[in-house]
Nucleic acid binder design. Structure first.
Length: 604
RNA sequence: GCUCUCGUAGCUCAGUGGAUUAGAGCGCUUGCUUGCGGAGCAAUAGGUCGCAGGUUCGAGUCCUGCCGGGAGCACCA
């Protein structure tokens, strides 16, 4: 917000160093750590170290030398319009703004830009974010929720930072797991499915667990049991084969059951306010992917060992001339000619770049698939697909339960819908005691916003690479560093503004030329950082940055709210200035929450 | 065996080279409602930043090795 002044000072520093033959290092500006005043600062440690390396300065210690340079620079700069004063301390050059002017600029900027405050300049690049890739024929669990939330928030950040953004989903609608559900449904449960979309999804999960138990080899099986199990297994394999050859009955069974899952998925995405632009399905890239393998074989990138009873493979390390195991050897086509997960990802990448003209492609997939993506991207590279370097696997830690890894096969999963329902229940019980003045019909809606806010925030306030042990009590906590804490700051700001309506002072003209409290200063400071936090989070692909920032912002507001009177203020100018500050804070918090895919209620 | 990842306060986590005391939340202890919503505010206690070397004027942060947890490594997705 003070780019002009900063540039001016930077130019003066450079000029000074050039004139005095000082080996100036790159100037990195940062906010001055809390001092009750604002400004920007830069250090001269690196510059002093450069000087020392050049043998100049008669062995003065680096910190001392940095301080000397800072002092000289300070004298050289003199006074600058809009800047209150400049100081040289501990090797740093601190440039302080005129407080009232700074506060005014920040608050004005937020209020004039409104919902667009913090938005980055439009970029030419198009970015595709792929997330929400659950398998069909199962129900959506809390691990899928982490994936979807991370992907969605990343998409929102990238979009807000100024990139054209395409949201892509890639459900796994193929494979043995899918066939298993179809088989057991067809054999034992046909037309017994429950009516509700979610009930049906959960029921499919249940029959899947039952089927895997039936098909699993047990200890001390009787010969009859073994024969039974093997017969079942043969039926399942036969169904898979029929699917592959396009058998009409099996295909129809597949279409119907697949649609059940997709219906549930769409409903959950709707709850999470996720709008997917492009749907890819594994079943659709199956055929094109085989064509790519054919080409890889022809060009000797892949080795076809099918004649010897083996699969089609790519010896990646060998092709790259690596001696140690790194990318290893990847199987790209089964012996029977059917495709694999990896096969399909080759065709998918091609589609993304060629059909949708994206410049970058981000895959939000858990860390266990790291090797898979490294292999896929390397094979694309060997194939000559230049955009391979624009593919990025955003890996994240998985979600486990206190009792261990989730397993659909064992039926040990925590479903998103269960947690969602529980969240609403808990909020409603809090509201029953704290929000008696809110009409009952409105409470349900707010409960959804708060409950989801808690859940979503709990998934975002841990860095991607960390695993999460899902504890429902922690995820649905409403106290401390949580979604509701941030939402509550928004509600409180709204409450003040609502009460100010009718008072003639409502957002009238004002100036910040009174003595600001440290809480006001801190709040304004936090707001001013919004744009750079958006940019950082988007460039580093880290929703966590925004999640932490939103908390800091809310925290600054809560402190302000508690310590600084607004409506009770006597002085009209001060009251108006503070009202504008509250309005700006409300806007900034709302913008931050929106980027985090969390609703900002007016009351709670 | 190889590759990747994590190891910071009792617990859950921030902090990827520079400003005397390494930060939050939970939990513990203690204050705050004749104030705009207490889902809050303020304060206290709590840390050999896994270990050992190295690079640097300066390392929780970068490099190497080791120890410990997790994951992946040919026809699952």
């Amino acid at each position: 917000m003070f780019q002009k002044e900063q540039q001016l000072i930077e130019d003066k520093v450079k000029e000074f160093c050039k004139a005095n033959d000082i080996a100036l290092a790159e100037l990195k500006w940062q906010p001055i750590p809390f001092s009750g005043e604002w400004g920007f600062a830069t250090s001269f440690f690196q510059t002093a170290a450069n000087e020392a390396k050049l043998g100049k300065g008669n062995k003065v210690p680096v910190p001392q030398k940095a301080q000397e340079i800072a002092e000289q620079v300070k004298v050289q700069i003199g006074s600058v319009a809009g800047i209150s004063h400049i100081e040289a301390v501990k090797g740093y050059l601190n440039v302080y703004f005129k407080t009232s002017e700074y506060a005014q600029r920040v608050v004005d900027e937020v209020l004039t830009n409104g919902a667009n405050f913090g938005k980055g300049a439009a970029k030419t690049e198009t970015v595709m974010v792929e997330y929400a890739q659950p398998n069909t024929h199962h129900s959506f669990h809390i691990g899928h929720a982490r994936n979807t939330i991370l992907g969605e928030v990343l998409a929102r950040l990238v979009e807000f930072a100024g990139y054209k953004t395409i949201r892509a989903s890639y459900p796994g609608d193929l494979g043995l797991g899918v066939i298993t559900v179809m088989w057991t449904y067809d054999k034992f449960y046909k037309r017994q499915e429950p009516a509700g979309v979610h009930e049906r999804g959960q029921w499919m999960l249940k029959i899947y667990a039952e089927a895997t138990a039936l098909l699993e080899k047990k200890e001390n099986e009787t010969p009859e049991q073994t024969a039974q199990r093997e017969a079942y297994e043969a039926e399942r394999r036969e169904m898979y084969r029929k699917w592959d050859t396009g058998d009409e009955y099996v295909r129809e069974l597949w279409r119907v059951t697949r649609e059940w899952s997709l219906e549930e998925l769409r409903d959950i995405l709707h709850m999470l306010d996720v709008n997917i632009d492009v749907w890819f399905y594994e079943s659709e890239v199956d055929e094109p992917s085989k064509a790519i393998i054919k080409e890889l074989i022809e060009r000797k990138i892949a080795d076809d060992e099918r004649a010897q009873g083996g699969p089609v493979i790519v010896k990646i390390d060998e092709k790259l001339g690596l001696t140690k195991d790194k990318y290893r050897t990847a199987v790209v086509l089964r012996n029977d000619g059917t495709s694999l997960y990896l096969t399909k990802d080759l065709a998918l990448a091609k589609d993304k770049f060629e059909k949708y003209h994206v410049d970058r492609s981000i895959y939000v997939v858990d860390f266990r698939q790291s090797l898979h993506f490294q292999q896929a991207f390397k094979i694309l590279e060997l194939w000559g697909f230049k955009q391979a370097e624009k593919c990025y696997h955003l890996s994240y830690g998985y979600v486990t339960l206190p009792e261990g890894v989730m397993s659909a096969r064992k039926g040990r999963v925590t479903l998103f819908k269960e947690v969602y329902d529980e969240a609403i229940k808990r909020v409603l019980s809090v509201e029953a005691e704290k929000s008696v003045d809110i009409p009952a019909e409105e409470r349900e809606k707010i409960a959804t916003q708060i409950g989801l806010g808690a859940l979503v925030y709990s998934m975002l306030c841990v860095d991607n690479n960390k695993d999460i042990v899902f504890d429902i009590n922690e995820a649905l906590s409403f106290d401390g560093k949580t979604g509701p804490y941030i939402q509550n700051a928004h509600v409180r700001a709204n409450s003040i503004l609502k009460k100010s309506k009718g008072q003639k002072s409502d957002l009238g003209p004002s100036t910040f030329d009174y003595e600001l409290t440290k809480q006001e200063i801190e709040l304004i400071e936090q707001m001013s950082q919004f744009p750079q936090k958006v940019e950082q989070a988007a460039e580093e692909y880290r929703p966590l940055i925004m999640a932490m920032y939103a908390y800091d912002l809310a925290n600054a507001f809560h402190s302000f709210y508690h310590a600084v009177p607004v409506l009770q203020t006597e002085d009209e100018n001060v009251k108006n200035a503070r009202l504008r500050l509250v309005a700006a804070a409300k806007q900034a918090i709302a913008n931050a929450l929106r980027l985090l895919d969390i609703q900002a209620p007016e009351v709670m």
